[in-house]
Design a protein around this nucleic acid. Structure first.
Ligand SMILES: [Zn+2]
Ligand SMILES: [Zn+2]
Ligand SMILES: [Zn+2]
Ligand SMILES: [Zn+2]
Lengths: 132, 132
DNA sequence: TGCGTTTTTGACAATCATTATCGTTCCCAC
DNA sequence: GTGGGAACGATAATGATTGTCAAAAACGCA
């Protein structure tokens, strides 16, 4: 027992990954982010990028998207529960909230006796710029 | 041009895969299905199972689910657009329809100028049997 | 500031579902 | 029945992600 300090340490690598995520506009893969860091001269290993992203995702600080047949994509998002409207071509992303959908999902699950309900929802489309 | 016959041939292997899917209750992976076929004495290659499932999915005859960190799962579903309420523990699946959600997603996308809209939606929970 | 302990790092190997190859098999229209 | 092309399937290749483990870096404390 005993809480015993979580002992999470501040490292140059973690700061670099976190900072980069703060500047990025849309979703990016671990390998993309790693390449960007190296281009800036930051010396960070790919393994560490993967680990850091996973930790941030577990902590709820970033969102993960798993597109069909591709790498996992990460993005720093606003707090609170929301979903994404993503451009298939360029990745441009809009955060959307749908209270009605949330309650609908919970209600449907409850009607069937399911507990501990969660859900995933993504909307895909072609953004105005890419449609042109 | 010229339509030229699609030239889709009926083979023992395709029939076997399709028939097996018809008997299965929930979602199953390509490797699971392959193992079941072999156990029945059906001689079908794993590659062919993958190819057949992909073809059926492309044709819209089966649904695909991609759980985090696992194999793709396939299931013969009813026709028409619908979503799934899935038990995290045993995989028990209920098909659900939500017209309100469909229109909400389309409306949101339209408001942001996105075209060719599609979406993915899955609800997860613990089914009554597994909750007990 | 120096130390000891514990976490973190990262180069490299391992994993493993899926896909590509490509010679063989066998549908099926004629 | 035959011929041409689709389908098969054993096997190798792919490629993202995870495991490994010795070396490096944090940080509480003296
Ligand atoms: Zn776009
Ligand atoms: Zn939601
Ligand atoms: Zn269950
Ligand atoms: Zn829908």
């Amino acid at each position: 027992m005993s809480e015993s300090g979580a002992a999470v340490r501040n490292t140059r690598q973690r700061s670099a990954v976190s900072a980069l995520l703060g500047e990025m506009e849309g979703f990016h893969s671990a390998q993309d982010l790693h390449a960007m860091l190296r281009q800036r001269g930051e010396r960070v290993g790919l393994t560490t990028v993967y680990r850091t992203l996973q930790a941030l995702a577990d902590a709820g600080e970033i969102d993960v998207m798993r597109p069909p047949g591709g790498e996992h994509l990460y993005r720093r998002c606003s707090e609170g529960h929301h979903h994404h409207l993503v451009c298939r071509a360029c990745g441009r992303t809009v955060e959307v909230a749908g209270p009605a959908v949330e309650s609908w999902a919970d209600r449907v699950a409850e009607q069937h006796g399911y507990a501990d309900v969660s859900h995933t929802l993504e909307i895909f489309g072609t953004c105005p710029d890419c449609a042109r």
